[in-house]
């Protein structure tokens, strides 16, 4: 009976890991084929100019895919989760900034063709914030388990 809560937490963590990997795998794949469109989506935030936006558009999808796979490799899981939590936090700040400035853009999170407008951006903001929190929780849990194993 005492194992029930830990089992529930373990199952929740496993499901969350799968979900995070799936979301970022899909996000990466959806942006790889059209870097110009993703670069434009980044540019539309009016935070970074064209060349840095292009570099991010060419690099970030591969990092997202790499991290999605690395989540399932125990020796790389912490790094992948830390990077994805950081990324999601940055996305959250970008989207909040766009909302604050009244920009009528789509988030660009899953390539082009996303909905524009304030309501769509609010949904993207909530999703990015949730992803950041889940990644941070999974990272914390993974680190606690790793330190527990090290003490044994």
């Amino acid at each position: 009976m005492n194992n029930a809560p830990s089992n529930a937490a373990r199952i929740t963590a496993s499901v969350a890991l799968l979900a995070i990997a799936g979301v970022f795998l899909y996000a990466g794949i959806s942006k790889i084929s059209a870097p110009a469109d993703f670069a434009r989506a980044i540019e539309l935030y009016r935070i970074v100019p064209r060349t840095p936006a292009l570099v991010v558009a060419l690099y970030l999808p591969w990092l997202e895919i790499g991290c999605a796979f690395a989540i399932f490799i125990r020796s790389l899981r912490a790094g992948a989760l830390a990077f994805l939590a950081f990324c999601s936090a940055v996305f959250t700040v970008f989207i909040a900034s766009a909302l604050a400035r009244g920009l009528d853009i789509s988030c660009g999170c899953f390539g082009t063709g996303g909905s524009t407008g304030r309501a769509a951006l609010l949904v993207s903001l909530a999703r990015a914030a949730l992803l950041a929190l889940v990644c941070a929780w999974l990272l914390r849990r993974h680190m606690a388990q790793a330190s527990g194993r090290a003490q044994l």
Binding site: P35, Y59, W62, L63, G66, A70, L76, A78, G79
Partner: peptide, 20 residues
Amino acid sequence: AIIRQILVLSILAAIPALIS
């Protein structure tokens, strides 16, 4: 360890990114 893992992931992702 986390920084080292992020570096490994960054280098691995840089290879296809450079080709792209």
